[in-house]
Design a protein around this nucleic acid. Structure first.
Lengths: 212, 212
DNA sequence: TAGATTGTTAATCGATTAACAATC
DNA sequence: TAGATTGTTAATCGATTAACAATC
């Protein structure tokens, strides 16, 4: 389907376009030019046009882009037109926070199961979803068409759990554990390394001080 | 102090170097060459040398890099040799998850206060830290030398809270709200847009399918 | 000294911006 | 038709990789 491979740099910008277009749509705005979007989003109009043209000509010369149409198209590109079945591994604070964050569901990311190794936690319900023991995970993934697993566990167990998930056919891993997972190329991994992010902030604070 | 501005691309890689060097150090390994590190980290040796040389010559020809020394140096570059005083705004699930994540503390990021607009939540303690009402926030920041604020609140209130924080002298904002904050240039903002991250994963899952 | 490996310059590659012809 | 704005090519800029002289 895809002609050329799209760079991750471009992919990383798509959600932001999607967000701003959604806001414009909510405001009832029907059309937008790359220049107008450029002013709002603080990126160059040129970059916007280049980015969008990776996926096809969504605009019209002399008119610009139809907000609703472009919003829907980017949504489709991002795969938001279909539902994803997710499980969360790790029912700690972070796992709970993610389950309770309803915005994911609105975008079609549906939490189907929660797993935890702690027998004390198993059986409890989080937002209506029962926490299950780890030994039920692999069967659950296969029986419920789970495509994404969220790793909200310490790095010590993440590598092993990732291997289990791969072996039972998971397609994507949203990894909050602070390790780089080595998985077959067909498996998509998206890392959220919170402490890396905080260190970046720390660096920028220090370097700013140095300038003064 | 800094000679030239370091690109955010390079800065973004530093925490990862730091992590791997920490692991080598824990294993008792004393020296490492850029080539060895390259094999472990799956980046080119050339990039490692270029990145490190942005900050000075940490290695020695014919020998490589001293693991402990390089680890400490990168730590200093990242500003981890000094303590940071943080507050969390928003005592919801995410805010609680962050407070309970002890690794930040180990790196010198100390949570000094938690704030929430819900009177029901105020007065409660999370990991020994009392949740305070929002109207105490500005004074608290000034009186306790808070340099970083963590925004774990919905986007609807994030813009306003960010303005308050800026006005009372915050230096950095770790922003988990799904908005782009517009703050003066001197303020550092580091965004964690979880839904953007999930959408990226979703895109990569879809594009992978298309290839098959 | 010989071998190893850095620091650094030069070459390549990719991403961003500028420019403009195509066209609505 | 005239004006506006895209889609796209060309120019620039920055980041990555390769190569190698410096040096431990």
């Amino acid at each position: 389907m895809e002609e050329k491979e799209i760079s991750q740099t471009v992919v990383g910008r798509l959600p932001r376009y999607f967000r701003y277009l959604g806001e414009l749509k909510d405001e009832g705005i029907e059309r937008v030019s790359s220049q107008e979007l450029s002013d709002i989003m603080q990126v160059t109009a040129s970059q916007i046009r280049q980015d969008l043209n990776n996926f096809g000509g969504f605009g019209q010369q002399g008119y610009g882009y139809n907000v609703g149409f472009l919003y829907d198209e980017i949504g489709k590109i991002l795969g938001l037109h279909r539902e994803h079945n997710l499980i969360i591994v790790g029912a700690g604070h972070l796992g709970q926070a993610l389950v309770n964050y309803t915005n994911f569901e609105r975008r079609g990311f549906l939490f189907r199961g929660i797993f935890d190794k702690d027998p004390q936690v198993c059986g409890q319900k989080i937002r209506g979803i029962t926490v299950r023991p780890m030994n039920e995970m692999e069967a659950f993934v296969q029986e419920n068409g789970i495509d994404i697993a969220v790793l909200a566990i310490p790095k010590t167990s993440a590598v092993e759990v990732a291997e289990q998930l791969v072996s039972c056919g998971i397609k994507g891993i949203w990894n909050f554990a602070h390790v780089d997972l080595r998985v077959p190329e067909r498996i998509q991994v998206e890392n959220v390394h919170l402490s890396d992010s905080l260190m970046k902030l720390s660096y920028n604070l220090s370097s700013r001080e140095d300038e003064e």
